[in-house]
Design a protein around this nucleic acid. Structure first.
Lengths: 235, 235
DNA sequence: CGGTCGTTTGAAGTGGTTCAAGCCTTGTGG
DNA sequence: CCACAAGGCTTGAACCACTTCAAACGACCG
């Protein structure tokens, strides 16, 4: 799973695909990035991706899923975002004022951006760094959608909206085929992201399934009908 | 309302106070900032603070309140954030993919940050620019709290949490006195920020009032009991 | 093959919405 | 200075979306 030798193939590397897509990284800079990818950090599912240093560190996901989340005093959780290959994410040191932790949902491979950048030549360093920032910005913009989702949508719409987000993001990195896409989450994860109870997520998923709009089962989304899901958001 | 001549007095300038507080701007750089404050843009209540240029422009609020919001297809609104003097806010050109508009809630005075920076000397320019970014970052971090508010809190808690945020932010710029603070919003604004109906905001405000935790009436918050409001969030 | 975690379903309760009407406050024009 | 209009606030009653609790079922793992 390290970088390929020499030439870079877009199709085999969803993460690089994603960065190119979200930030307009040039293919030549992308090739450089592949070459200088530093020590790969690996985390098993459920591990916390935390910065050991006292300052936040920017990580870049090569493979696997993570989420940003916080556990509330009463034990309930709020998930703020999900990261897939090609996404940058800020991992912070664990302390009281930490707004969120980054948690691996599957086994995860990622790199430390600053560390990898230090291995690149000056010229490409700035371009890659700019691209990472652009991708980070894009993630920030998504938060507006998150807030609308929580503030002004019904349970069914929240699910539809989130599934659409997953579909479109995974599609950009080539992880969607005609049969659907993998979604390594439990219903509880969806509940914690959408501000709903697990039970109600279950019922809403059933409604989506019976309505023929999307089926989420065994970690896979199938029967995904983009048009009708979008339609659902307009009511 | 232009900058004072020569010396800078913290007490008379809530906006500068705020920037110092949120970003650790040095008092000398703050004095420079006051001196170079560029053409002041003025907007009446309900006006849209939009960038005429095709690119987003960073504005810095001198006086008055604004909010970031979006109107949904069905006419309902979602308010993403409120800005008070000393806050930076990104004003975007109006177009279809615009995530949000900045709207003046009172009459507002602000400056264009880039324009003002161009009037400062190199050395102070970087420091002021860094401070603006730090303040912008702080606003970003607040979004985590916003999401928890919407995702995992009851109506009463959402109100308590938002009032606490207002109180603490206004306190930092010296806009709270022992009698309380001004809050130039309608109940509908609160509803649109908290993802609730106006009617329910009204009932919840009544509950807070009867519970002796806070009274919001006629654009003023009084009887503000910080401890009990914090207590309310821990249940 | 048993245990654990995740999913599914039912029944009852509750927090928030919607609709509708009346009231209060503020601003405006006569 | 008063009358009126308009917008915001307040209240009641009915309804519905979502939660909670509880129990059973299914899939996966050692």
């Amino acid at each position: 799973m390290a970088q390929p030798s020499g030439t870079y193939k877009a199709q085999v590397h969803p993460a690089v695909d994603g960065l190119i897509h979200s930030s307009g990284l040039s293919t030549s800079a992308a090739a450089t990035l592949c070459d200088v990818i530093g020590p790969i950090e690996r985390y098993p599912a459920a591990a916390v991706v935390s910065s050991i240093a006292p300052a936040p560190r920017l990580k870049w996901i090569l493979s696997g899923w993570t989420c940003e989340m916080r556990v509330l005093p009463d034990g309930r959780r709020q998930i703020f975002s999900f990261e897939i290959p090609g996404d940058p994410v800020l991992s912070r040191p664990v302390n009281a004022s930490n707004p969120c932790s980054v948690v691996a949902l599957t086994s995860v491979e990622c790199i430390d951006v600053a560390q990898t950048l230090s291995r690149a030549r000056e010229s490409e360093r700035t371009e890659i760094s700019r691209a990472m920032n652009a991708a980070l910005n894009l993630a920030q913009e998504r938060r507006y959608e998150d807030i609308i989702r929580l503030g002004r949508r019904s349970a069914l719409q929240r699910l539809a909206d989130l599934l659409l987000e997953f579909h479109d993001r995974l599609d950009q990195i080539g992880l969607v085929d005609e049969r659907g896409f993998y979604l390594p989450l439990t219903q509880e994860h969806l509940a914690d992201a959408l501000g709903l109870s697990v039970v109600h997520v279950n019922r809403s998923l059933k409604a989506l399934r019976l309505g023929g709009m999307a089926t989420f089962r065994f970690g896979r989304v199938t029967q995904f009908d983009r048009e009708r899901l979008v339609e659902l958001l307009r009511s």
